[in-house]
Design a binder for these strands. Sequence first.
RNA 1: GGGCGAAUAGCUCAGUUGGUUAGAGCACCUGCCUUACACGCAGGGUGUCGGGGGUUCGAGUCCCUCUUCGCCCA
Length: 937
Amino acid sequence: MAHTPNADEIPSRYDPATTDAALYEAWEQAGVFRADTGASERIGGPKAPYTIVIPPPNVTGVLHMGHGLNNTVQDVLIRWRRMSGDDALWLPGTDHAGIATQNVVEKQLAKSGRTRADLGRDAFIEEVKTFVAEKGGVILKQLRAIGASADWDRTAYTFSPELSRAVREIFVRWYEDGLIYRGHRVTHWCSRCLTALSDEEAESHPAQGLMYHVRYALKDDSSQSIVVATTRPETMFGDVAVAVHPEDPRYTAFVGQHVVNPANGVAIPVIADAYVDKEFGTGALKITPAHDANDFEVGKRHALAMPIILTPEGAITEGTDAAGRVPAQYLGVDRFDARKRVAKELETAGALVKSEQHQHSVRKCYRCDTVVEPRLSDQWFVKMAPLAAPALAAVKDGRVRILPERWEAVYVNWMENIRDWNISRQIWWGHRVPVFYCQRAADSRQPKACREHFASRDDNPVCPDCGGPTRQDDDVLDTWFSSQLWPFSTLGWPNDTKDLKAFYPTDVLVTAPEILFFWVARMVMSGMYVTRSAEHPDGIVPFHSVYLHGTARDAQHRRMSKSLGNGIDPLDVVNLYGADALRWTVIAGMGLGNDLLLDHENIEQSFSTGRNFATKLWNIGRFLLLQVGEEPVKPLDSVAAADLSPADHWILARTDDVITGADTALGPARPTNGRAWTNADHRLGLRLDEYAESARTFVWNDLADWYLEHAKTRLAAGHPERETARAVLVHAFDRALRLLHPIMPFVTETLWNRLPGHVDGTWLALAQWPTAARSANRAAAADFDAARASIAAVREIRNEYVVQAADVVQVALGGTAPGLVAAAQRESAFVTRMAKCELVPESAIAPGTEARRVLANGVEVSVSLAGIVDFARERGKLSTELEQLVKQLAALRGRLGNEKFTAKAPAAVVEAERVKEGEWSARVEQLTARIASLPKA
RNA sequence: GGGCGAAUAGCUCAGUUGGUUAGAGCACCUGCCUUACACGCAGGGUGUCGGGGGUUCGAGUCCCUCUUCGCCCA
């Protein structure tokens, strides 16, 4: 005989601290999160694969709220599909994060007064590796605390030997396909990180600065001059020309002549180039080819010198081609100091016409916020246009969808205007560019018979032309070069592995819009490139859906950030209220693509919805254990249909509805036709907040507020319906737990394991996702609804007239729907208990003593309130209702009388309006009669 | 400067091809310690759907325009 606990043995609050960690360990030991490669139908197994690859956090990172919401979304999806019977793989891992990690270690070194140069390249890399080994991967442990059900056995790392091989493989393929080239051009340079950056890594920020108007006098006639506007006068040392528009009449006479650069006295030509915007500023531009990307293009067109006047660190220097251009007193001066000094000297010399406040934008390093400097250098580039074309087509034809959909337009716009990608970084931590130079070719004494450079899959290759020794390029690759391979490198590519066959392409990519270009677009391009075949000439897209979620913000809508100190540590929330509270709050509070607002100054209030709901669930479970006991219940399908009451049918119908609702909100899991999203299914699914809300309403407002209350009577010992009520209640709660498990895995698993009849060693995490049974009798359910509506009406009247909670009122049911009245009366025990009333015949209530409501279903509920009914108030209330209804009915009749409407509107709409007309007129009659029967005041 | 989008209840947002009396959560107000839960229960919504114009039998939804705001890229 199972032991039925008493109330003292089960606390009234769920205590995540004592259960969650052990539960997570139990899941792991049971192998619940492990994906089974052989089970994938792509290699002959029985299950559809469902794969999510984690956006790899920086290996030295720690969990913040952004990770919290990103990974919760992924875990909800993966748990949902795992329960739905898919071969679900959530593949975790970390990114070596080149610049970011190098910066962290350099800061460590700085504490002991050392720099990376002091150590040298090899020792520094060892230092970083040691640091990563000791301090890295913390975030993966933290993800376990929020319940992430990733397959940890497959944890990947972008800098592992396996993934490094993938990096080298694609580099060599691209190089050999002519998609990677060495370019001599102006790129963004971070003078703090001492490396070039891609366009994406140099973020634009609005800035207020000074626009200096500087006079360049004509060399041969100093009475004439051209005024040039610039925000960076310190770059004037690198000026090689002044450019004007060829069709600008103001300057035609100057073209071909020379002006004197007032900063250094060097004479430079005035050139004509259509790039100049006549309308902007003075219509004349100084041309500094080595320190401005546009000027560089102008310089190339006009074969101008390209003097470099800034050191890598951002100080003024007389660099390549700059001999004689930089006054000695400026050498070594920082660029921003130089800016002020140049401006001052120009002013002194009378060359500064004016300086005015100017709104513009500056680009800053995305890793250290230093203002980047455009700087001429040799870098490695990927030619993007050929890669972008198929990736663009894939989104346009629906093989990849991006949600929310408006981001597709942004993606298309970027792809259509794509620029080549600078992939070389002058740092040490990362994959070294696998390009090699023949040592002999570099030797000027040797005849130049060997190619200048080549890419190699192997270390230390010999020169393919002369067999001589080679030297590897010093640069490393952009971190994003390796992370773009993530959906396939983590599965074993370039090897033709079972995992790759089983799990590529993946399904949903969950990330933030900020890295749409950094990462998502590049994964599409590289993923398609490496999967090209005779069967798939354009390759296979790496995922069919991109889910872009919003940003965690504080109550003032500011992005949560370390520097603002307005962040919330997800682990604090876990410790205070549990992972389920965190997860629920995140999922329920975050519409697709919308930001999540949380108040860092009131963590309790921010997460109370999640905490409260977990407690509610817990208490339903507590009630169940106390009232239902632990004796196994009959499976629902062995309960005789005749034994089911209207309440049973009602909750079973609601159970079906919530399952259908959740499925609609979440799915389809993949394109319906298996190939591409169509107009019909493009925007469907992934509405996690709607799924959460429908499940919450079911549990709280249907199951707890109504069915469970109704069941209290039937569960009494010896009640003839006790077994039926137990079976239905346990069934409905079981379905609720299954539905909620993806969002609140801990409390649902804990409760599920204590349900009557639970089989030891089975896990909710692996239990089957519910399907709608569709066996409920909807007519019987409507009978229960009649009782519910009557209860609600009595409660409303009680509140209206401030009837004391303990007072029992007399209630009569009547009206135009005798069937429903009878149905409500059959639930008299329930009605009287819930509404604190006794049911009496209508004749038992003396006319003129009752408050009455006319329900939408035709039932009239009269509450005897002799002496306290305010008939003026009743009349007013009913009249307002009637008035509104009459107005709407008139409009409705007008519509139905309009031939254009009946002729043009769809038949179904017209029919619905006709039905409505019947209902409304009946109700108008009821209301009119009731008002007429009210005693005159 | 180029591109995309938003404006609906105090706040955050739903509202699918135009077709119920425009909804939800939170917040707020009133009354309740009704023995699963006060982290709870019951009751409470008169919104010029940003302004103006248009198309239509019918507009929160489509078109034009103005205003304000946001995002992406220069």
